Simulated scan of single mutants.
Amino acid sequence: MTRRYLLVALVAFAASLAAVLVARVWLAPEPRVESEVHRLLHERLSLDPAQEQRIHELEAAFAVRRAALEAEMRADNQRLAAAIAAEHGYGPRVGAAVDRSHHVMGQLQKETLQHIFAMRAVLRPDQAAQFDTAIVKALTQPAQINR
Rank of each mutant, 00 (worst) to 15 (best):
N146W: 06
T140F: 00
L69W: 11
A97E: 01
P49F: 05
V37M: 04
E43M: 09
G91S: 02
G89V: 05
F117T: 14
I55M: 03
L10Y: 10
E36M: 09
R66S: 13
D99A: 15
A96P: 09
L80R: 04
V33K: 02
A60K: 10
E111F: 04
L113A: 13
Q130F: 06
P92S: 10
R120S: 02
Q127R: 06
L40C: 07
R32N: 08
L113Q: 12
R39Q: 12
A67V: 08
A128D: 02
A60D: 08
G91F: 00
V104R: 11
A9S: 15
V11K: 03
Q109A: 15
Y90F: 13
D48W: 00
L6M: 15
R44Q: 14
E72Q: 15
Q109C: 06
I145L: 12
V98M: 10
Y5S: 15
I116W: 08
A12R: 12
A50G: 14
A15V: 13
Q53W: 08
V37D: 01
F131W: 11
E57W: 01
L58K: 04
M105S: 13
E30T: 11
E59G: 03
V136T: 05
A63T: 12
A19C: 10
E111V: 07
D99I: 01
Q114E: 12
I135G: 01
I55L: 11
V122L: 07
A143G: 05
R74V: 03
A15W: 05
A121S: 15
A128M: 05
H115A: 01
A82H: 07
P29C: 09
A83V: 02
T112M: 12
R66G: 04
E57F: 05
A14M: 06
I84A: 07
Q78P: 00
T140P: 02
V37Q: 02
A75W: 01
A118M: 02
V22K: 05
S46W: 05
R3N: 14
V94Y: 04
A9D: 14
A15R: 10
